[in-house]
Simulated assay, not measured.
Amino acid sequence: MTQFGTIKHAFPGSNTPNGFHSFFNYILPQKEANQLYIIKGGPGTGKSSFMKRIGTYATEQGLDVEFLHCSSDPGSLDAMIIPSLKIAFLDGTAPHVVDPASPGVTDQILNFGTFWDADKLTPYKDNIIAVSNRIHDGFSKAYYYLAAAKNIYDAYIFTERKAINPTAKLKIEKDIIHQVFKDVKDKEGIGSVRHLFSTAITGEGVLDYIHTLIGTTKNIYFIKESFGCNSKKVMQSICDTATAKGYAIECYHSPMDPDKIEDILIPELDIAITISHPLHKPRIFPTLIFDLTAALDSARLKSLDFELDKDKRLFMDLIDKACNMIGANKKLHDELESYYINAIDFTAIDNLYDTLIQKFF
């Protein structure tokens, strides 16, 4: 019986209050890569399908694969990695324009633009420009909604922090650090950090792939938090401590606050740390649970309930508006793709696929 490889899913970028935030330079670091293929080409030229085909073939050969999804259209891929071969494919077009850092050495460009018939696109020039402009405007409005949501998010944090017992919170944070690292030995050198998103704000709502990243990890530490009584400080401390001890780690960030780490994976130790709040709900079975919200003074919090509830409802409504706008843009993007699909020579792409499969396998 054939043993299939496993598939992990994540996002290399996300829609955020400050626009599109990219971690594309962490997909497969240059010094670790055997080959990086940067795919150039317009919408509907088959970039995502091409990456899915190669990734699926790799899993059928028993290799583990990472599918990195597009936050604007989670059904599409922005990148695909085969870690054991140290090979990655990535979409190098807007909004995450990527150019070769080491052309011809590790980086190769696959130009899918050579596979289209420009004469078939020319009659639709005005349509293509008009739809592209509407997509640009749609994302601009979505980011205005997300910026407004971030202001309400910050206002919620400002209010809820009045109910935090700082001594109690510090005690819980120290306990978390102790539990995670109590049996961890130091290694020589400084560890490395890879940054991605496990959660993204998309046209289908706030989606996550947390379970595919840490679901099978042996030791999973689960931190219950609220927006105000949050784990931002302790998660950064875990990241700093792990790298200071010499371990390579993966950090997955918040799309609402990209500076905030929400999941940490230490593969060599089979350890994962994840958090839980209304926008981040891991579907996993934890080894140990910590409750940061226990540091909230219940009497003080009760006096703030009405104000916090109003802020939370307004915040969630703005998130919904942003997601709906991104979803409407997806329909426009489908229209844009339709012009290119009819102009592409997919037989040429099939031939390229066959050539690369023979090269790798």
Rank of each mutant, 00 (worst) to 15 (best):
F89V: 15
S49Y: 07
I214F: 13
E307C: 10
C323G: 12
S198R: 05
L213Q: 13
D119S: 13
P267V: 13
D175G: 06
D270A: 14
D117F: 01
I261C: 05
F158H: 10
S76T: 13
T274L: 08
N18Q: 03
G41S: 09
H211D: 12
E262W: 08
T202W: 00
I39H: 01
H21D: 01
A242C: 13
G203N: 05
P258Q: 02
N127Q: 14
I249C: 11
E188C: 04
H253N: 04
G246K: 13
F290G: 11
A244I: 14
N127V: 05
L63Y: 08
E66R: 02
L63T: 07
Y156I: 12
T93S: 13
G13A: 10
I238C: 07
I284Q: 01
I39P: 01
I157L: 00
P278I: 14
T241A: 06
L301T: 02
K150F: 09
E250H: 06
S140E: 12
S76Q: 03
Y252L: 15
T45N: 01
F197Q: 08
A200M: 07
L332T: 04
Y144M: 14
F290R: 13
T217M: 09
K232I: 14
D183V: 09
K310S: 08
D297Y: 04
E173T: 05
S14N: 02
V180S: 08
H280Y: 11
D240T: 13
I271N: 01
G203I: 06
D345C: 06
A142K: 05
M235W: 10
P258L: 01
Q35F: 00
G138L: 00
H9V: 03
L36P: 07
A155C: 01
K312F: 05
N324T: 10
F23N: 12
I271V: 09
L77D: 04
V105P: 00
M1D: 09
D350P: 03
K302Y: 10
K233S: 12
